[in-house]
Design a binder for these strands. Structure first.
Lengths: 217, 217
DNA sequence: CATGATAGGAAATGATCATTTCCGAATCAA
DNA sequence: TTGATTCGGAAATGATCATTTCCTATCATG
């Protein structure tokens, strides 16, 4: 599966993640909120929070500053909305990638492949919004810090579940500590995202997934 | 070894990394360049490049804007100087941590311990300047991108050397591809720095080093 | 069709920021 | 001592940025 994040996101068939807004009184919104957020994700991911100027965002979203502020309150509000959508979309895509995997080990392999896929070429260079949030807002903005921490812990817990599942079905070594192993796998995944920012190709990143599976023996 | 980065850096006994300036004509500089850079490293690491205002930097360095610009040309010049010193200092500290390690495997263990040490508590939260540079300048500034890429490749090559060394001395499995294994280890290291930004403690991070050694079997 | 409410958008606003300027102070070469 | 040179530092400058304002447009409701 070599589908760019944005190609997948702008495809019309993906499941709704935010739900349609109720059409209350007043003039209806002329732009698609989710599409705008996808573009905001791209801008924030590659430039960081502080590096993304409102003018960059209005240009990328095709909105004027007035509309942007009416819809998202703030630059910070836009970032938080984009962050939430990013996590939701990535979670949904990961869930889809996990569908065929029967064992705990196969699921972990699928997660590793998913991240290796995201960490090369143009998408890899664009980077991860969670990492971006961790770097330039984790120390300054408590709410963003909480979301970043929450996203990573969620990922960690999910991985720990797969490790335990693999131990139950015999595909992961029984003596391993699920949480410690999951934390190490989390480091591998986030590290891929950092290394992927330096412009690696598929041949460099894809084999990492297979090699990392040795952590389950 | 649980020494904070800054405690170690402000200690008077560490080897010179930048060399003394020749005292040319004109009024001599009243502040210590390396000490100023160490403080700049702290500010840039925890706030990112764009997030660090000149006023933040002048306050942290104890300099006025005029002096700062005379000494470092630019905000960007200050960042580049801080980045270079950061890499030099970390390399030197890593070299010291590597001194007692006899085998290839022991050296890799030392590197992993070094990063686990850097990725918890206050230092972990402060974060890594290379990661910060990767996130908010890698797409915008070609020179910074080149330095980040160079720093990571250097790390990768050094790790590959240790893998090969371990294969020669029998402490690392002979069938492994040194470069692929080194790249995976690099992901583990950089991932630790990202995860460490979310405020982990030593108990969470230290065991990662031992568990990651399984990648060498 | 009138009212209330919200959206789109251009232009203005106020703050912040990076950078420069200017001047007195300190040092070196002569 | 003199002149050249660089530093320290406060204040000014110009640009950029996030945010607001104001006006028009478009809907739901009664």
């Amino acid at each position: 599966m070599i589908i760019s994040y944005h190609a997948a996101m702008t495809a019309p068939s993906h499941p709704r993640l935010t739900g349609p807004r109720r059409p209350g009184p007043g003039r209806p919104r002329e732009f698609d909120t989710d599409l705008a957020l996808d573009r905001a994700i791209a801008v924030f991911s590659e430039r960081g929070y502080q590096g993304a100027a409102i003018s960059d965002l209005t240009q990328a979203l095709g909105l004027t500053a007035g509309s942007l502020y009416k819809a998202f309150t703030d630059k910070r509000g836009l970032f938080l909305a984009a962050f939430d959508r990013y996590v939701a979309v990535r979670t949904e895509r990961l869930r889809a990638a996990l569908e065929g995997a029967p064992t705990g080990r196969a699921k972990i392999k699928a997660v590793l492949d998913f991240y290796a896929d995201s960490s090369h070429g143009a998408d890899g260079r664009r980077g991860c919004l969670v990492v971006a949030g961790a770097v330039d807002l984790a120390t300054a903005d408590p709410e963003v810090a909480a979301r970043v921490t929450g996203a990573l812990h969620l990922n960690e817990d999910r991985l720990a579940g797969f490790v335990a599942e693999g131990q139950a079905d015999g595909t992961v070594a029984p003596h391993l500590d699920p949480m410690a192993t999951a934390r190490l796998l989390l480091c591998v995944l986030q590290g891929m995202r950092v290394v992927g920012k330096t412009g690696r190709d598929r041949v460099e990143m894809a084999p990492l997934a297979d090699n990392a599976l040795k952590l389950l023996d």
